[in-house]
Computed example of a mutant assay.
Amino acid sequence: MTRIAFLGLGHMGLPMARNLVAAGHEVHGFDLVPAVIEAAGAAGIPIASSGADAATDADAVITMFPAGRHVLDAYQDGLLAAARPGTLFIESSTIAVHEAQAAHGLAVEAGHRNVDAPVSGGVVGAENGTLAFMVGGSEEDFAVALPLLEVMGKRIVHCGGPGLGQAAKVCNNMVLAVSQIAVAEAFVLGERLGLEHQALFDVVSQASGQCWSLTTNCPVPGPVPTSPANRNYQPGFAGALMAKDLGLALQAIEQTSTDAKMGRLAQELYAAFAAGDGAGRDFSGIITDIRDGRV
Rank of each mutant, 00 (worst) to 15 (best):
290 I>C: 05
281 R>N: 10
93 S>C: 08
258 T>H: 12
24 G>L: 01
108 V>E: 14
36 V>K: 09
70 H>L: 02
61 V>G: 11
90 I>V: 15
140 E>G: 05
284 S>M: 07
272 A>L: 10
1 M>C: 03
69 R>N: 13
70 H>P: 01
53 D>A: 15
37 I>F: 01
180 Q>Y: 08
158 H>L: 12
236 G>N: 09
18 R>P: 00
274 A>Y: 05
235 P>L: 03
220 V>Y: 03
149 L>N: 07
7 L>R: 11
35 A>H: 09
115 V>I: 15
155 R>K: 15
80 L>S: 12
161 G>C: 02
53 D>T: 11
273 F>V: 06
235 P>A: 03
168 A>C: 15
95 I>R: 02
237 F>G: 12
25 H>V: 02
49 S>W: 01
216 T>A: 14
42 A>L: 10
175 V>E: 08
193 L>M: 15
256 T>I: 02
179 S>P: 00
18 R>C: 12
216 T>G: 00
213 S>A: 15
27 V>F: 03
111 G>F: 06
257 S>I: 01
204 V>G: 00
13 G>Q: 04
33 V>D: 14
60 A>K: 08
58 A>N: 12
11 H>G: 00
273 F>W: 11
249 A>Q: 09
80 L>Q: 12
209 G>F: 09
141 D>I: 05
50 S>C: 09
283 F>S: 11
23 A>W: 00
170 V>C: 06
275 A>C: 02
227 S>Q: 06
158 H>S: 06
258 T>K: 03
255 Q>H: 13
153 G>I: 01
196 E>V: 04
65 F>N: 07
278 G>I: 01
140 E>Q: 15
2 T>G: 00
290 I>M: 04
152 M>E: 10
215 T>H: 03
246 L>A: 07
186 A>M: 13
26 E>A: 12
40 A>D: 03
132 A>L: 11
286 I>P: 03
205 S>V: 03
283 F>D: 13
116 D>P: 12
293 G>P: 00
281 R>K: 15
33 V>W: 10
121 G>K: 06
218 C>V: 08
81 A>N: 12
61 V>C: 12
159 C>D: 02
48 A>S: 14
210 Q>C: 12
153 G>S: 06
172 N>Y: 12
187 F>L: 05
190 G>N: 06
11 H>Y: 08
71 V>C: 05
200 L>H: 06
116 D>A: 11
28 H>E: 14
209 G>S: 11
224 V>A: 04
284 S>H: 04
227 S>V: 04
176 L>I: 14
115 V>K: 06
26 E>R: 11
138 S>N: 09
99 E>K: 02
202 D>T: 01
228 P>G: 02
287 I>D: 10
95 I>M: 07
53 D>V: 11
266 A>Q: 07
214 L>T: 10
1 M>L: 08
72 L>M: 03
169 K>N: 07
257 S>M: 11
244 K>N: 08
123 V>M: 02
247 G>W: 01
193 L>K: 09
108 V>T: 13
84 R>Y: 06
7 L>S: 11
292 D>A: 15
181 I>Q: 13
171 C>I: 15
31 D>G: 02
272 A>I: 10
284 S>K: 02
295 V>L: 04
134 M>I: 05
156 I>W: 06
259 D>A: 15
239 G>P: 11
7 L>G: 11
127 E>K: 13
